[in-house]
């Protein structure tokens, strides 16, 4: 146990006196940035795809769009996130002669990837809304798109909020691979501290605890949000 105490001392020394804390803060920021922006982009893409998928299919354009969406979803769900990151960063960017930071690429890939997953979540959410809601909107002369936007999607989002929360948590966890494209996340920060002290036990333990705390905070936030949404149903 003495040994462990020494390790803790060594860890606090690096964190608080040799700038380790800055690395951790930067890592935490990047982790959250990638997960949050990825989620937002994912929700936008996912909602668009889900809408295309539930549009009536007797015209040509919806059918073409639907085919494209199936391809997109299959592609992003069928390959690992790490592979997507590496392909974007080391294959597509050079080919397109574009410059992006590791964090930017991560945000984009996380958004594209979660868009594919969220489209399926959103589709089941839309299908869980009674068809009478769409019919009532159409009956007062609103278009399919307007009824979707004002009536169906808000109710669908409410139904899938817990699942969206899980997707956010999954994104947070998956950020631990963004160092593959040079983005400094929590893993990079603690790995740096470990490398500098030749001691990995305490850094990785603290990293695990931070991930757990993040997940608990998000879960609690989602539960609170759900509860306040339920209340708005019964407001008198």
């Amino acid at each position: 146990m003495n040994n462990f105490g020494a390790k803790v001392d060594q860890f606090t020394e690096i964190v608080f006196h040799q700038g380790g804390i800055n690395k951790i803060v930067e890592g935490l920021q990047n982790t959250l940035l990638i997960a949050i922006l990825g989620l937002i982009i994912g929700i936008i893409i996912g909602t668009l795809i889900a809408t295309v998928r539930v549009v009536p299919k007797y015209k040509l354009l919806p059918r073409i769009l639907n085919g494209f969406c199936s391809f997109y979803v299959g592609l992003f769900r069928g390959t690992p996130m790490v592979v997507q990151l590496l392909v974007f960063y080391y294959v597509l960017l050079p080919l397109l002669e574009m410059r992006m930071t590791g964090v930017q690429v991560s945000i984009m890939v996380f958004g594209l990837n979660s868009g594919a997953y969220i489209s399926e979540i959103m589709r089941s959410g839309i299908q869980s809304v009674d068809v009478g809601q769409m019919e009532a909107g159409r009956a007062v002369g609103l278009s399919f798109a307007t009824t979707m936007r004002m009536i169906v999607i808000p109710q669908a989002v409410k139904n899938i909020l817990p699942t969206l929360g899980n997707e956010f948590i999954a994104l947070i966890k998956e950020t631990s691979v963004v160092s593959f494209v040079g983005a400094s996340d929590l893993y990079v920060a603690f790995n740096y501290i470990g490398t500098n002290s030749y001691e990995f036990m305490v850094p990785y333990l603290v990293m695990a605890v931070i991930y757990i705390i993040l997940v608990i905070l998000i879960s609690t936030g989602i539960r609170l949000m759900e509860r306040s949404l339920r209340k708005s149903d019964r407001r008198n």
């Binding site: 009478g132 009532a136 009956a139 009536i151 149903d233």
Partner: peptide, 14 residues
Amino acid sequence: MGMVFQHFNLFNNK
């Protein structure tokens, strides 16, 4: 052309 449904179909989120 108004329409009234058997199951009302009021907008639940409004």
